[in-house]
Amino acid sequence: MYERFAKLLEERRITAYKVAKETGIATATLSDWKMGRSVPKIDKLQKIADYFGVSLNYITSNEETSSSENNNNNNPLTGKKMTKKESSQYEKVMGEAALLFDNEDVSEEDKEKLMLALNDIFWKSKQRNKEKYAKSRKK
């Protein structure tokens, strides 16, 4: 995770101190992440993602695209552009799932398989909930 953060700092020519000051994340916390003494919590990662205007998934995974185009993905169930709510939920779920691999000896192939399975589960759950609540509204 810190590698992505460092890359963003370099690309944007911003110091970690400035990010810490503007996000409210202690510089000691950033240092602990860098040295591997602690693992970032999702709320702090979200602050960093928001600060840089990138997705949480970009910060926590090997995803190569850092721009907001990550949030313009289509909902695979409808083929339509994801709503803001869907995009937010998706980024949160997938970002938290990516943290499962932090500091673990898991092959890239296994990570990819698990992330694809989680993606599938996420969208199937959304569809089931939509059907369930659409039926209850009709009653």
Rank of each mutant, 00 (worst) to 15 (best):
Y2C: 02
E22A: 03
S38C: 13
A16E: 07
E64D: 04
L116M: 08
M94V: 10
E86A: 11
K113H: 11
V39T: 10
E109N: 07
Q46P: 05
N72A: 06
L77K: 11
N75C: 11
L30Q: 07
D105S: 06
T23Y: 09
A134E: 09
E63Y: 14
E108N: 05
Y2A: 02
E10D: 02
L8S: 05
K41R: 10
M82G: 07
I14P: 00
N129I: 09
A6W: 03
E11S: 05
M1I: 08
S66D: 05
R128E: 09
D102S: 09
G95S: 05
Q46I: 14
E108K: 07
M35P: 00
L99Q: 10
F101K: 03
S136L: 13
D50H: 13
K126D: 00
R13Y: 10
T83C: 03
S88L: 13
E63C: 09
T60H: 04
K81C: 05
A16T: 08
K85L: 13
E22N: 06
R12Q: 11
I14G: 02
S125G: 12
Y58S: 05
K84W: 14
K135V: 11
E96I: 12
L118F: 14
T78K: 07
D110K: 08
A26L: 09
G36T: 08
L45M: 10
T65R: 11
G53E: 06
K18R: 14
K124D: 06
A20P: 05
E3Y: 11
T23S: 04
E104Q: 15
L118H: 06
Y17K: 15
I42A: 08
A117C: 12
I25H: 01
A97M: 14
K84I: 15
K21Y: 08
S67M: 03
K130R: 12
Q46F: 13
N103G: 00
R12G: 04
I14R: 04
A28K: 15
R128Q: 14
F52I: 07
L45H: 01
Y133L: 03
G36D: 01
N70R: 05
E104D: 00
G36C: 03
I59Y: 01
Q127P: 00
N74Y: 08
A134P: 01
N72V: 00
N74M: 12
E108H: 04
L114V: 15
N57C: 10
T83P: 05
T27L: 14
Y90R: 08
F101G: 02
F5V: 03
D120S: 11
A6M: 03
T78D: 01
K138N: 14
S68A: 07
V39G: 00
Q127D: 07
S68R: 10
E3P: 00
S55F: 06
I121F: 15
K113G: 00
W33N: 04
I59N: 01
P76W: 02
I14N: 01
Y90I: 09
L30S: 03
L114R: 11
S107N: 06
N72R: 12
E10I: 02
N72G: 03
L116Q: 10
K41A: 03
K81G: 04
K34Y: 06
F52A: 04
A97L: 12
P76T: 01
Q127W: 13
D102M: 15
L77C: 10
L116T: 14
L30Y: 12
T29R: 09
Y133F: 14
A97S: 13
N70P: 01
E131K: 14
M82E: 09
S38M: 08
T27N: 13
